[in-house]
Design a protein around this nucleic acid. Structure first.
Lengths: 207, 207
DNA sequence: CGGGTAGCTTACTGAGAGTAGGAAAGGAAG
DNA sequence: CTTCCTTTCCTACTCTCAGTAAGCTACCCG
């Protein structure tokens, strides 16, 4: 076996993707804290300074991972939601939740580490992560605001943040104890819990 | 100024409390990642090996902080909930939520770091933190199970976890953008969103 | 006034984040 | 093919910080 070209140069964009993939893997396995940059670099087959060249710091690397997976989630949700739009708001709610639980299922621990438990940090990284999470909530606030034009901004915000939080915790529970309830059933059950609350808000909208 | 007795020995239990207080402070200011044990020990006025003597590791120290603040929250919630018990389930829900938001207000960033964002780690510490969080959910599952004896375990779990998650995210939102909505109003708004869902579940309990 | 122990310290080791400074692959131009 | 330049990449460090070894000392009890 000609043991292959010893060193191959790879264009930046591609290398970045390789690094992100490896990092996501290791973060998911070990958690942020217990992941060493040496291990990531080893797994990519590249030396440590490259990681710093491309991502500036360990936190930067984490952040890039979070941004990428969030973006995937975001577009998966948008697809599901807009496909359900013609069937009315209740269907939208269910579809959105189902897309979320499905995504969590497919990404397993990576989802848990990168999207929830993740960080720890204070300072800029925390801000950045909250901002990325904000996209999700923003999307929801838009949708809810469209259904319930009479509701006060505070009500809309509370519904949106509450729903996001509920989704996160329920998904987490599924990952841990996740008795055999599928994404669809889970979505229906959670929608059952929330949906009448939306209607109620609508009915009592003027306080 | 007789600059006071140079060194005073302090019994273990008391020292532990001092350390926990200082650690909570620093974790809240800087986050777990950016806190050094040296800084904590400096702030207590004791040397680093003491921290390890009493708490075994940095994670151990974090864990002890989490356990303590969780215990406070737990008893505050129980007090509020049992006081509201005679007024019926809806009052219990509101009282519980209000106690939670109130607690979050009083503890500010410490609440955020220690009870939500915190974790970070994988392995035993993650388990331990999830277990502590589990008390909260367990409490809720008990209460909900008592109201809705006909609901399936999965429904009860989803309601409990969903409610916990909703509470966490809404509290977090209040901490950040927290437009002037007080704990009580917030609790009422969130209860509005959830309560009819509980009733609905009851009505359709047999699927 | 010895001893015993609980509380305490100084002074280290080792792991891992982050960096300095340079090598060399590969393409473009002569 | 040779020279030059850019981009990719590496070896070999520094420095901070979690965690430890090896005791010292204040205080209590006889």
């Amino acid at each position: 076996m000609t043991d292959a070209p010893r060193r191959k140069r790879v264009p930046r964009a591609e290398r970045e993707q390789q690094i992100l993939a490896a990092a996501e893997e290791v973060f998911a396995e070990r958690g942020f804290q217990n992941t060493s940059m040496d291990e990531v670099s080893l797994r990519v087959g590249v030396s440590k300074p490259m990681l710093y060249e491309y991502f500036t710091s360990k936190e930067g690397l984490l952040l890039a991972c979070v941004a990428r997976i969030r973006a995937d989630l975001h577009s998966a949700t948008i697809d599901a939601v807009s496909a359900a739009e013609p069937d009315g708001p209740r269907a939208v709610l269910e579809a959105g939740l189902e897309a979320y639980f499905d995504f969590a299922d497919r990404h397993g621990r990576a989802w848990a580490v990168l999207l929830n438990e993740s960080v720890i940090v204070a300072g800029p990284a925390e801000e950045a992560i909250e901002a990325i999470r904000g996209q999700q909530t923003q999307l929801l606030e838009d949708v809810i605001g469209r259904w319930l034009p009479a509701a006060s901004p505070a009500r809309v915000s509370i519904l949106a943040h509450g729903l996001v939080g509920a989704g996160e915790r329920v998904a987490r529970w599924r990952l841990r104890d996740g008795s055999g309830i599928g994404p669809h059933e889970t979505a229906v059950l959670l929608a059952d819990a929330f949906w009448p609350g939306f209607a109620e808000v609508e009915a009592t909208a003027k306080r």
